[in-house]
Amino acid sequence: MTRGHRWLVFGAVLLLALGVGAGLLIGRDDRTADAAAGPVDVGFSQDMSVHHAQAVDMAITEITGGADPAVRNLAFDILTSQQNQIGRMQGWLTAWGEPLLPTGGYMGWMSHDGHEGMAGMGAATTMPGMADGADLAALRQATGAARDVLFLQLMLRHHEGGTDMLVAGAEHAETGYVRDLARQMLATQKSEGELMTRMLRERNASPLPLR
């Protein structure tokens, strides 16, 4: 590992720690203890923390090894925004006295909100759009332009896979600050998705099918 690469890794890890810490402070300052969090608030915050954590991991991989400054800049934006949002959600969960991570599977909370296609369903073992171990290994092993393209493909699919959860949180969370954050995430990820689609087209690459 070169000195420059080591500094990139160090900087990305430092930004991660600072962003999560700042988010925790903001989350604990949302007067969460005064609000009655329902199953959607709790489930959304737990599951989206996990979903975001993988996006942050992929963004760090791109920042520390991608070739295209434009793609690395996008990865930096995703890293800084989503790590802060993780901190906020973890701060809420702490204030509510709830586990920081989901237990017993994912997305079971969506059956509580009457969300179309989810009512009556139990918890899932994975969430839509998530990269698997082989995907993450391929991203780490790719170099140069190949890493840029794979990052865009994986992150676009990741964003698309989280849309239903964001919609459910935005429409059915009982606390206003959870609804507001979900709406902010929806707007940001829609804009980023359009940008990634355009970037892939410019690189003669296609989006991955959602799974």
Rank of each mutant, 00 (worst) to 15 (best):
D113Q: 08
M127T: 04
L101A: 12
A119T: 05
G133R: 11
M130R: 12
A134N: 11
P128W: 15
G117C: 02
M107I: 03
D132E: 07
D113P: 02
D132F: 05
S111Q: 02
G114T: 01
L100R: 04
Y106A: 02
E116A: 07
G117Q: 07
G129W: 00
G122W: 10
S111D: 00
M107Q: 04
A119Y: 15
G104E: 01
H112K: 05
A134H: 11
P99W: 09
E116S: 08
A142D: 13
T125R: 15
A137L: 11
H115F: 12
W109D: 02
L136M: 11
A123D: 07
E98P: 01
M127L: 10
L139K: 01
A131P: 05
P99T: 14
D113S: 09
P102Y: 03
T103K: 15
H115K: 14
A134D: 09
P102G: 12
P128H: 12
A123G: 14
M130D: 08
T103I: 14
D132T: 12
A124N: 14
D113W: 14
T103R: 11
G129E: 00
M107A: 11
Y106E: 00
D132S: 03
A119P: 00
W109S: 10
M127S: 05
M107N: 02
A119R: 13
G108Q: 05
G114C: 04
A134W: 01
G122L: 13
M127V: 09
P99M: 11
G129K: 00
M118P: 10
M130A: 14
A137H: 09
M107K: 01
G122H: 03
G108K: 08
A123S: 13
E98T: 02
T125P: 13
A123R: 05
G105W: 10
Y106Q: 05
E98V: 03
E116G: 05
A134Y: 07
P99C: 05
L136F: 01
A134I: 09
G117T: 06
D132K: 10
W109G: 14
T125Q: 14
S111F: 01
A119M: 15
T103E: 12
A131D: 07
A138N: 03
T125A: 15
G105I: 09
A124P: 13
L101V: 12
P128L: 14
M127P: 05
G117I: 04
M121L: 13
W109R: 02
W109T: 07
T103Y: 06
L139H: 04
M118Y: 05
M118W: 07
M110G: 01
R140L: 04
G129R: 01
S111Y: 00
Y106S: 09
M107Y: 01
L139M: 06
D113N: 13
A131T: 08
M121E: 10
G108W: 10
H112Q: 02
G117D: 06
T126G: 15
G105H: 03
G133M: 09
W109E: 08
R140I: 06
G108Y: 08
W109N: 09
P128I: 07
L100C: 06
A123F: 04
A142P: 15
G114S: 03
G120Y: 10
G105A: 07
